[in-house]
Every structure is written in C-alpha cells, then in structure tokens.
Simulated scan of single mutants.
Amino acid sequence: MAPQRDRRPGFSRRAQYGLFLGYVAAAAGALIGAALLLLSTFDPPAFAALRGVVREGTAPVSLGLRNLRDGVAGIPGSIGDHFRVMGENRELRAQVQRDAALVQRARLLVRENERLRILLRVQELPTRTVATARLVSSSASSTRRYAVLAVGHAQGVRSGQPVLGPEGLLGRVVETSPHTARVVLLTDPDSVIPVRRTRDGLPAIANGRGDGMVDVRSANIANAPFLAGDVFVTSGIGGIYPPGIPVARVLQNARDTAASRVFAQPDRADFAMVLETFLPPAPPPQPVPTPAPEAETAS
C-alpha cells in the first residue's frame, strides 16, 4: 500500500491548534536566536549584560535542581558507607599509630622552619578569602569550560580573582553580575597557569585542553621528562594565583608535554572560594602637582 501523502490533521480542531502553535513556537525561537546572534555580534557589552540577567534568573532553578540531584545521588553512597565504616575505622586507627612518629617529625620541622623565617625576616604576602559560595553549574560537554558561582560583585567579587575548590584550583573569575560570577575553568583552552613540579621545582605551564584535562609543558627546558604521578602546583608567577595550590597530576610518562588530570573537578565540587589576587594591581601613578608660577612683581 502506498504511503499516505496527505499529512493534514483532518477535521480535529485540537490537532489543528497544536500544529499551528508548533509553527508559532518554531518561528518565535528562530527570531529570538537570530536577535541574540546579532546582539552578540554587534553589541557584546549589551549581550554580556543580558547574559548576566539570565544567569541571575536561572541560578535559583539550577541551585534547586543541583540540590535535588545531590540528595538522590547520595542515597546509595550513604548505604554503602554504613557497611564500610567499621573497617575504615580500624584501618585509620592503625594508620594513626604508624604515622605518630612522622607527625612528631613534621611538627619539629614546622618549628624549625618558623625559626629560620624569623631569622631571615621572610615576608609572606597574606591571601584573603573574598567570598565562599555554592557552585551553581558548570559546562561538561562543551569545548569551552565555564562555571557559574552564586556570588557576585555585590559581595566583593571582581574579574580576575582566583577560585578554589575543596581539592585544588578551579579557575578564575572572568565576568560578574550582582549575585553571580562566571568562572573560566583551568581546563578551558584559554586558561594558561604558571605551575611548578613539587618534587624538584621545575617551572612549567598548564594549558587547558577543553576535554576536562590540561597539558603541562616545561617553561625553560626543551624536551623535559615528565613521570606518571608528577604533581604540579601554582608557582605564584604572574601575580594572580597564590603559590602552592594543587593544579594537576601527570597521567603517564612523557617528554616536553604531558597530559594531566586536574585535582579539582567542578562536577564534584559543591562550594568554592574566591580569593584576592596574589599581587593586587598597582594603583595608577598620581600626577605630580606643578607649583603655580609666582606673580611677577612690578619693576
């Protein structure tokens, strides 16, 4: 039997209205998309402001959905933790006994380090926490990696400030609205972070790949060897990120450039901290007032 070519909804008013509303919705969506595309092309500041308004409106919804998802996803883990807690407690007690000597040694080294710092008069730059807030959402499938933080310039957050998760560096703030902030993650292709290797202090650069990982390459040695398990932390160079923040771990042996997995995963982070920049920008030089010429005395 030949397929029916007449696809009209017939005499059903409900089907006709549904088809008509579908056409109207499709046309309205196409017009709105074209308007947003033109706005982002010819007036980026206005498009950024509009994007901030949309973030302000969608942040509570995203926050509620994230809380619901975390609550449901945590039920199986809670049941499993109930059965594992006794064995973990026994292992932890044994570990504490084994590490007692190491803890005492570490305390001695800390006191010795403090004494040497006093002798050398080493000046440390304080790092202040600007705000702590919930991470509302993050992009996991796009090549551009951004996250939205539920805090904005009304709470003192400014563009360029570093953002930390519970396990390490997440990225830096690139855009703020009154109560939300847009964060470019360190896995974004535009993210470039000066780092150093913990075992020997090798300076390197961590560059985002857009796939959830970063590429680490040596900053001053050609064809430098990288070993699986090498840990890299922020070096403090550049004046944005404080030194010593965990960034990434090398996955396998490589030379010159090593694929590395970041410590801080935004999809597992509930909260994040916004810090002041390590070296705040210097204030602009003040103009030197010129003395007014003295009035000439009559001869």
Score class of each variant (00 low, 15 high):
residue 138 S to L: 08
residue 157 V to N: 10
residue 93 R to E: 13
residue 113 N to C: 06
residue 89 N to F: 13
residue 198 T to N: 10
residue 162 P to K: 04
residue 124 E to T: 11
residue 162 P to Y: 03
residue 134 R to A: 11
residue 160 G to Y: 03
residue 108 L to Q: 12
residue 185 L to R: 09
residue 139 S to L: 14
residue 99 D to R: 04
residue 118 I to C: 10
residue 175 E to G: 00
residue 140 A to P: 00
residue 142 S to K: 14
residue 131 A to W: 05
residue 172 R to F: 11
residue 131 A to M: 07
residue 174 V to E: 07
residue 185 L to N: 10
residue 109 L to S: 12
residue 144 R to V: 09
residue 198 T to G: 04
residue 187 T to W: 00
residue 128 R to M: 10
residue 137 S to C: 02
residue 171 G to M: 02
residue 108 L to E: 13
residue 168 G to D: 03
residue 133 A to S: 06
residue 157 V to D: 11
residue 169 L to R: 00
residue 100 A to E: 08
residue 102 L to F: 10
residue 155 Q to F: 13
residue 141 S to T: 15
residue 203 P to N: 07
residue 190 D to I: 07
residue 111 R to C: 04
residue 203 P to I: 05
residue 191 S to G: 01
residue 186 L to P: 01
residue 202 L to T: 15
residue 134 R to K: 06
residue 160 G to T: 05
residue 161 Q to S: 02
residue 149 L to P: 00
residue 158 R to K: 12
residue 179 H to Q: 07
residue 164 L to V: 15
residue 122 V to H: 05
residue 204 A to G: 01
residue 99 D to C: 02
residue 197 R to N: 02
residue 184 V to S: 04
residue 177 S to M: 02
residue 135 L to A: 04
residue 134 R to C: 02
residue 201 G to Q: 02
residue 185 L to E: 08
residue 136 V to W: 04
residue 139 S to V: 09
residue 101 A to L: 09
residue 135 L to M: 05
residue 96 V to A: 14
residue 134 R to D: 06
residue 192 V to K: 08
residue 96 V to K: 14
residue 135 L to T: 05
residue 189 P to K: 13
residue 142 S to N: 15
residue 157 V to H: 05
residue 100 A to V: 09
residue 97 Q to A: 15
residue 197 R to A: 03
residue 143 T to S: 14
residue 108 L to R: 14
residue 100 A to C: 04
residue 163 V to D: 03
residue 112 E to D: 09
residue 92 L to Y: 11
residue 169 L to M: 01
residue 141 S to G: 12
residue 153 H to C: 08
residue 99 D to P: 02
residue 121 R to V: 10
residue 149 L to S: 00
residue 128 R to V: 14
residue 179 H to C: 05
residue 199 R to L: 07
residue 131 A to E: 10
residue 103 V to H: 06
residue 143 T to P: 09
residue 103 V to Q: 10
residue 124 E to F: 07
residue 190 D to G: 06
residue 175 E to S: 06
residue 140 A to G: 08
residue 178 P to G: 00
residue 133 A to N: 00
residue 122 V to C: 03
residue 117 R to M: 10
residue 93 R to M: 13
residue 179 H to E: 08
residue 141 S to A: 15
residue 111 R to D: 11
residue 117 R to A: 14
residue 199 R to W: 03
residue 152 G to R: 07
residue 95 Q to C: 09
residue 124 E to I: 10
residue 159 S to W: 05
residue 111 R to P: 01
residue 136 V to A: 13
residue 125 L to D: 05
residue 121 R to L: 09
residue 90 R to A: 07
